[in-house]
Design a protein around this nucleic acid. Structure first.
Lengths: 136, 136
DNA sequence: TCCGGATATTAGACAAAGTCCAGATCGACG
DNA sequence: CGTCGATCTGGACTTTGTCTAATATCCGGA
């Protein structure tokens, strides 16, 4: 299945998002290259094509995608947030020097022995980040 | 064992850090209250006492502590980094709404099934963050 | 087709966290 | 006391992200 702009419209609709031009472009940027992009990378990608999209719209749209569960937020670098088009359960591998971020399928990963949560709390998510460095 | 300013000097020396007034104050701020503080919280704490310490020094010092392995960095909130005086192996529990951050002892937590690392890579650390929310 | 309202987009001002630099200050040692 | 390297400092600057008020677009009904 290819991530054409047309298919993006359907994807957006299925997530209860009104598919506008800008939203389609932004979704396309994220999904066509299955990669983790930061907000300004998204902006750069979107604006290489003809129509310009404003910074405000990029931020608004990414936040909207987040709320609607279309993308996930990955916080590994204090200086910028990455957006992850893969919403299936998975973890992350972060190469500290290069800043490269990749997925670790959660299927075979087991996390056990976590203490019970404080009363009245529910888990919103578990982020597991493996930070690696090149041997020198 | 109490975290007096005098003891801080020894702690710094044992980590190969020249113990200056400012560094002692900053270490004391972090260690005397075993808590996660952000850079500006550190600055606020340090500057309630007489001598003022500049923003640049706070940032420089925290970075130095980090390099020397005196503190850990915890990245849970995209808007600010927390510094953690607890360097023993542990994970974190983050209350999304309140921003409260607490430790989870790593002793009983087992993470298994992680795939092998890419060649030429070594693990620098594994960050496990449990994000929780108050039930409503 | 034209209108009106709701929704979306925009430029640019603003805020907050963090970095950088050149000059001032400190403190150890001779 | 004077020197020198290490440290500290104010303040300008950068970057990421937010906010706002004005404009543009879309869509259903007359």
């Amino acid at each position: 299945m290819h991530y054409t702009r047309d298919n993006m419209a359907g994807l957006l609709r299925s997530h209860d998002i009104n598919p506008t031009h800008q939203r389609i472009e932004i979704a396309h940027a994220l999904f066509s290259r299955q990669e983790h992009l930061s907000a300004d990378q998204v902006m750069a990608v979107v604006n290489t094509r003809h129509s310009e999209t404003s910074k405000a719209t990029v931020y608004n749209t990414l936040k909207l995608f987040l709320e609607k569960g279309l993308v996930r937020e990955v916080i590994v670098d204090p200086s910028k947030v990455f957006f992850d088009p893969n919403t299936s359960p998975h973890h992350h591998l972060y190469e500290v020097d290069s800043g490269k971020l990749s997925d670790i399928d959660a299927e075979h990963v087991v996390i056990s022995g976590l203490p019970p949560l404080p009363a009245g709390m529910v888990t919103e998510g578990i982020d597991l980040i493996v930070r690696v460095r090149r041997t020198r």
